[in-house]
């Protein structure tokens, strides 16, 4: 009887320690099965050649760093890296600057008008990427596009905006900035509204004009919000896939082919799963580095 009580107490103590883990285990099991394993397998594949169709054995053979060495001699990969880099840098710099400007303007107009404008600018963020791309194709189409119709009415020449190597990338960038502007402005605006009014009053007393207020008060205090906007933006842009695939398909002459799109072609068109995984690993590393640099640049505490 005494033994039973002791055993029960011991089990109770063990259960007390185990219970939290048991309760959270469904998440971790799901995480392990659907995220950890695929990610780990993908990393491993980056170092392997894989013919998944082979039925005898695994079809896997370890090739070490071969794919990674090959990557940096692959002109198409380097081109996709350059395209992704241009998109990321231009969209981040121009997009964030425009979003800050828009947020400041929206903050200055009367509240009712601001609400209407916010809703309008935010609309692309809740619209399907397919719809957005379709609208921009309608605008930019060479033969039947609104932009070319306008140019023609103004006596100017039509241009193949999406089909010309010199303009396709910029057309894509304009669409990306337009579609992300509302979201970024909304986040930045919430940051603007959290800056205490007294700081502006103090700046005014010190003789600061609108520009000084913006430069010395608003911008430094927006740093945490900008860190969020820039970091999430960069991660999204580095992995950019759907808008490019839908707008230009990566063409012409791969001038709009991003790393993610190239990765997709390698895996699903060329069935080079090992090489595609090496691209995925490289892209992830680039994302880590970019996020880290962001944090170093914009990070740090802000004290009011």
């Amino acid at each position: 009887m005494l033994l039973n009580v002791e055993a029960r107490e011991r089990w109770g103590r063990v259960w007390e320690k185990l219970a939290p883990y048991v309760f959270i285990s469904p998440f971790f099991l799901g995480f392990a099965a659907f995220q950890l394993f695929p990610i780990s397998f993908s990393v491993y594949l980056g170092f392997a050649e894989w013919n998944p169709y082979v039925r005898q054995g695994t079809g896997l053979s370890f090739v070490g760093l071969q794919h990674f060495v090959q990557l940096f001699a692959d002109a198409r990969f380097l081109n996709s890296l350059k395209v992704t880099g241009i998109i990321t840098v231009v969209c981040t710099l121009v997009g964030t600057a425009l979003a800050v400007g828009l947020a400041v303007l929206l903050d200055k107009v009367p509240e009712k008008l601001s609400m209407i404008l916010r809703a309008l600018f935010f609309m692309p963020s809740v619209t399907s990427v397919v719809v957005i791309t379709y609208i921009w194709k309608q605008i930019l189409s060479e033969k039947y596009g609104y932009l070319n119709a306008l140019l023609e009415n103004l006596g100017l020449e039509r241009h193949n905006w999406l089909g010309s190597p010199s303009t396709a990338l910029w057309a894509l960038i304009v669409m990306l900035i337009w579609s992300g502007l509302g979201w970024d402005a909304l986040i930045i605006m919430s940051g603007l509204r959290s800056i205490p009014e007294e700081l502006y009053d103090a700046a005014k007393i010190d003789g600061a004009g609108s520009w000084e207020e913006f430069w010395y008060v608003t911008l430094p205090l927006l740093r945490p919000v900008l860190l969020f906007v820039v970091t999430t933006g960069i991660i999204y842009l580095l992995g950019l896939f759907a808008p490019v695939q839908l707008l230009t398909g990566g063409g012409p002459l791969h001038r709009t082919e991003t790393v993610a799109l190239y990765l997709y072609h390698q895996a699903f068109d060329y069935q080079e799963f090992g090489y595609a995984s090496a691209i995925a690993v490289t892209l992830t590393l680039i994302m880590f580095v970019a996020s880290f640099l962001n944090y170093r640049f914009f990070g740090g505490e802000v004290e009011y």
């Binding site: 194709k137 930019l140 189409s141 060479e142 033969k143 039947y144 193949n160 999406l162 089909g163 396709a168 707008l247 230009t248 398909g249 063409g251 012409p252």
Partner: peptide, 17 residues
Amino acid sequence: WDWDTDGDPMVALKEGD
């Protein structure tokens, strides 16, 4: 005609272009 950027050419056929 570029299907990726110009879309479905049916519009050109229908318009008699």
